[in-house]
Amino acid sequence: MAERITRDDVAKVAQLARLALTDDELDTFTGQLAAVLEHAEDVAALDLADVAPTAHPLQLGNVLRPDVVGPTLDRDEVLAAAPSAEDGRFRVPTILGEAP
């Protein structure tokens, strides 16, 4: 059974989710998430070792698409909807680290 979610957990989760929280929000969210997770304890406590997980309600598989070229978007229309663009590309501020 999982332990009660802490303020530090919430801070870490907010960072992972790219959200900034004020101290007050951190307190509020910690309490609210704890309440929801506490409610979920009934589920966490069930012994379901022999039950397979269902990732998906639809018992289907092998849905494949033929390798045929379809339409593309108009670049000007796409870049016009972007917050910032330059030279046919999307512009973003300095990127601090390389991709993982």
Partner: peptide, 17 residues
């Protein structure tokens, strides 16, 4: 998706939604 897999084209032309 059906956007072309092609190297060397003009930026952001081989894109679909």
């Amino acid at each position: 998706s059906g956007a072309p897999n092609r190297f060397g084209d003009e930026p952001n032309t081989n894109v679909d939604p």
